[in-house]
Design a protein around this nucleic acid. Structure first.
Lengths: 233, 233
DNA sequence: GGCAACGACGTTGTATACAAGATGGCGGTG
DNA sequence: CACCGCCATCTTGTATACAACGTCGTTGCC
């Protein structure tokens, strides 16, 4: 594992994806195929495939014969991503609460422990990974594993906004408390309670979008929809 | 419009997509990059981009250094696609029923008329397009237009199964009746009623999947999930 | 006869050269 | 001074040559 066997497409994709979502590269910035290829020791061909996938996810905007740019954060698209994630995850967790077995609950509790440890050591990146693992695991418990990639794609749009807000210090504690309540509901097979907590959980970060958008106007595109009281129930 | 200005990637994508969904090419069949490129007068480069996208949608399976094949119909993936579509469209139509204005209802009624005409002239392909337009329009009325591409992707998986069943002659009439009831509920702002009819509508075609899978075993992959009573409510 | 090693073939993966188009600056012109 | 047209330059789009790898048939050996 010492020599770089393959800085391959997968690595390039994950790196670029992370850099865009974390905001290391700003919306509107030019992503030159040749330069990116040189930077990673690859030719344009594999780079183009990665660009295409990122464009499909709405993270890049390819303008033919002009250039490929980091896409602005499209506010209506973000609202729809929230709708999608909230609708699917809340529906799925009711199934998860119904179907969860002892081993599933044990797995979730293990993730809770790891998340607590990550927060205790200020390992925000590690917590971020564990958070994603937990949501994916819940989707597996709900017996809908193929839905996760769809949610992950929507999540990227939402995370772009999230990373623009300097994370509050009190934030991780609140997230952890919500995670514990989710696992508690699933463990008790309380489907309605789990859905309710999940909805509140998913709206926590989303609630600040208008404030964040107002703070970084050049990064955004489109207006906040008129019916923006999100969703009733 | 006489000369073929561009048999470009878009055309190639739509053609291949349609051929796979309609079952013109069978699961397991080899899709050679070079041969496909020659057939369309393109080189391997644009073909590869199309293949990549189709693989992302689960319609192709790219095996490195071996070949690209038409993917088998993955039964668990189909069940998850049904879960995704049903969850999102039923949730969205409650919003559509709440938000629909007079012009929206008028557009829907126009689509109903066109659909009736298509069926009357046995134009099944035309009806298929109009059906898709209606579902997309409903998503726009619900103020979530960006969700449609996600549903369209899931729809492709479901349509693969649908096209394997020789469509019943009484089938179009039932679909039309459901469409009319949906528009009726939306027009009356009956959100719960609309969701109920939509759920029944989406399950109509899906209900036969086990029968169809049993009829064409070599085209399928994976088993029917144990909790296959789909979804409660 | 069974089996293992080898090699030809086919496929996708990668790199690179060239083409087509868009942009922006420059200079000419009214 | 304003404006129009041209051209250098940069970008992505496409085509093609080569490399890496897996498959499968063949052949030789045991």
């Amino acid at each position: 594992m010492s020599g770089k066997t393959k800085p391959s497409r997968q690595e390039l994709y994950e790196d670029l994806h992370g850099r865009i979502v974390r905001g290391d590269v700003r919306p509107g910035e030019l992503m030159n195929e040749t330069k990116v290829g040189d930077a990673y020791g690859l030719s344009r061909t594999p780079v183009r495939e990665v660009f295409w996938r990122l464009a499909d996810e709405g993270l890049l905007r390819i303008v033919p014969q002009v250039g490929t740019f980091v896409a602005p954060i499209n506010i209506p698209a973000v609202f729809d991503a929230q709708f999608l994630r909230e609708t699917l995850e809340c529906r799925a967790i009711t199934e998860a609460a119904r179907l969860a077995g002892k081993q599933d609950v044990a797995d979730l509790r293990t993730l809770l422990t790891q998340q607590t440890a990550a927060i205790a050591s200020d390992d925000f990146a590690g917590f971020f990974v564990l958070d994603e693992q937990m949501h994916r695991r819940l989707m597996e418990i709900a017996a809908h594993p193929f839905v996760w990639p769809v949610i992950a794609s929507a999540k990227a749009q939402l995370d772009r906004v999230r990373f623009l807000s300097l994370e509050d210090r009190s934030w991780p504690a609140m997230i952890m408390a919500q995670h514990r309540r989710i696992v508690s509901c699933v463990s008790a097979h309380d489907a309605d309670g789990a859905a309710e907590v999940m909805r509140a959980h998913l709206r926590t970060a989303f609630a600040a979008i208008d404030r964040i958008a107002a703070k970084h106007p050049p990064f955004f595109e489109g207006d906040i929809p008129p019916h923006a009281q999100t969703l009733p129930a």
